[in-house]
Design a protein around this nucleic acid. Structure first.
Lengths: 244, 244, 244, 244
DNA sequence: TATGAATGAGACTTCATTCAT
DNA sequence: CATGAATGAAGTCTCATTCAT
């Protein structure tokens, strides 16, 4: 139950010297401890483009840091280093750490939101639609950094009501509404027998969220085949399928 | 989309952001802004008892603070105030903030662990056993501070591998093992038809975890009847029940 | 006893003091919160004229800012905004903030210096001359921004010896010398009986300086009729006058 | 018109290196550039006494720094060094730089206020009373650090309305009221002929204030015998005195 | 010439930790 | 054992100055 302390890059002092703030956080696994993004791959083109690139780099870096350390433990300085810009530059793009965080989350959620707006993959059965959707979600969210963002929201939500509100409004309530519609369609078509399911669309997505959290916390202890799990879950709802 | 609150106990600041460490955290809802727990209810008895009481107060206070602010944003000072002890006293009981956090989590999980060890309520059907267990869980975890601890682990786990490890070893793997056993029992008894469920006991508990998270983040937007949700979930697994 | 104002132009901060440079200054009353002087009144004519105009705008803006905030608390950025130019432009005209300050003060004092050089209003009595001069001074200095410059010198002088030196050399010593000459003339003519006054011409101008300071600090608590005050002062020196 | 730049203790860089904030202030003459007050003269006695001593040292140091640099240009760090305490210690005694400044000024004015409350030296003539008072003032204010505080208020007053208000209320208005009473007494006794003087007690004190300012700004160019000046001034008001 | 994005030193303030009482 | 004053490292944010466009 002991693990590497102090931030990477600091020679580990066996005793935190005099006083000063010692235990900042444990920082078990920062993706990569602030790799300066030197060596721009391409010619930077004109001014506006440069600015956009810079901003993108900051956003990228900030997300990485926030994800791996949480809001409070993330240092602007590290974001800057990782983005390859000076500290002050960050303040040209964001008012302060807090608004940066909120804006980042909002921005990062946009793709998810768009996906929810996108016309559902109207295909054959409702099950196929949901399964397709879920596979997508698991592949593109649970396994990727987007999943970490979900976990970040779970982690920081209570301290950032604005973030939690936004997430609820834009992602959760919409996603559940869409899911409810699909469930009702499934019931109407006779694919789903359990009528009460429409009252709790959360049940449908629960395993997907579990997968997201599992990924972050336990995947190194025990990998989880999220897609297969979801399939089993769908079997519960739609009845067992093909012999597959 | 902005709701940053000041720390409780700080008179609304007349000053602009200024400098110094600004964005500490947003702290939307501290349970109670550090109410010193003076006035011990009983006569303190002897020395050792006093110490134990003190320690308990610290643990209690620290958990509250960690839950509502997260690890980094929690101040030892606030824990001390809330516990009604001096700052230095905390260091008589814990080596530092970090080990305090880890030890706290471990301690707080003990009741859950004990529950997992306890002989399952062998009663009638497997469904009744699971439903009883789940009701218990939802009532005593999802709705209470213990649920917040689960969320706290989700939030800080990646930065505290020791915590995540401990949680996996002592709670998750055991809980899932127990659940798997129950599922297999259900399959053997013919209560559960879907045999693959035993491969993913996570599915069984997923809605309970969803409930925990929902509680923290969205309950003020939309309350969730977790017990009813879980019942519907069980209906999926065991088939619809009585007309109740 | 607290009236700290935020800087003009900054939306009232929802955040507590936090960190970062906090207490920059209180800035109780910035003349006008940096109104960009866009919309040049006339066609700019040729290049050199444009440059001169720009420089004048910068000087004007800088004086206003320095007066209302003092040297250290004044930001180049605000000067630029107020002058309607880009920050970099200021560095085309001035080496740095410090030399800008010194040069500004020097420039701003030139009119006063010229007035001191100007042939004294040789009129009838010495009293009339001094009274005329004083009325001029009070009307054109005490009540206007030039008075603020005097206060600025008092404020920053100790930190800008060059400024204080210049002010002493060009304004104070000359002014006092002129005043002494007038006093001696008055003594010679029998208008002034108190011969020792020539040793302390400061006495003659003291009320005028008081008026300048009063203007800046206390006029909103209690207005001061500086001209009348000066007249009473002259009555002390020259004896009471007409019934007027 | 050039003078030593950079802060004392910093090797003077002929060019301020890369960028960074260069021109902080000129700081022509810091009394002594932060001499750590090591070596406490006496045994520090008990805890409370120590705290009082510390606080006094901070107050002392802060006043010195504020006086020689002004509010904004003063660094908490320098105050700490000069007081011989750690930076953080200052925040145990004062909320922030700004309230420290305001409180300091208030505290520093208390002796002056007390003097104003003290029963006036009722002696022989009104002139003697005023002369006694003025000599006191000049000796104990104009020539000492208290005079610098007056100048500090003149310098920072416009940006610290609270300070200016306090100064007006507690010192200026009271002082002028007392002076007016004395003048009226002088008029009643026939010592002062010029009745209008009571309308402008400022005239009476003007030379004293001039002396204060002269001290700070010009005394090294031309020393000023403030006491003699004030005597001449009184001669104007009361008529010439003894042949002395 | 003029611009304003970028820089990074530095200021203020916080807070984990220590230790004399 | 308990306290809480003191410390000083560290974090956030500012702003004078530069320089590519």
């Amino acid at each position: 139950m002991s693990n590497p302390k102090t931030r990477p890059g600091k020679a580990a002092p066996s005793k935190p010297a005099g006083r000063g703030r010692a235990a900042r956080a444990v920082t078990a696994e920062a993706p990569e401890p602030a790799v300066p993004k030197t060596a721009p791959s391409k010619a930077p083109a004109n001014r506006a483009e440069r600015a956009a690139e810079r901003r993108a780099a900051i956003v990228e870096a900030a997300l990485d840091e926030f994800i791996s350390r949480g809001f409070t433990a993330t240092r602007i300085d590290d974001i800057a280093k990782r983005a390859g810009v000076a500290k002050g530059t960050i303040y040209l793009h964001f008012k302060d750490k807090e608004s940066m965080f909120e804006e980042l989350i909002r921005t990062a959620l946009v793709p998810m939101i768009n996906r929810l707006h996108a016309p559902p993959p109207i295909g054959g059965s409702v099950r196929d639609m949901i399964e397709g959707f879920a596979q997508n979600f698991i592949r593109e969210v649970a396994t990727t950094r987007r999943g970490d963002i979900v976990r970040l929201i779970v982690a920081e939500g209570p301290r950032f009501p604005a973030v939690a509100d936004f997430y609820y409004r834009e992602v959760v309530s919409r996603g559940l509404a869409g899911m409810r519609a699909l469930i009702e369609l499934g019931i109407a078509r006779g694919e789903i027998r359990q009528k009460d399911l429409a009252r709790f669309p959360q049940i449908m997505v629960a395993p997907a969220l579990i997968a997201v959290i599992w990924q972050s916390l336990f995947s190194r202890h025990a990998p989880l085949d999220a897609i297969e799990m979801f399939r089993v879950h769908l079997d519960l709802i739609f009845g067992e399928r093909r012999t597959a």
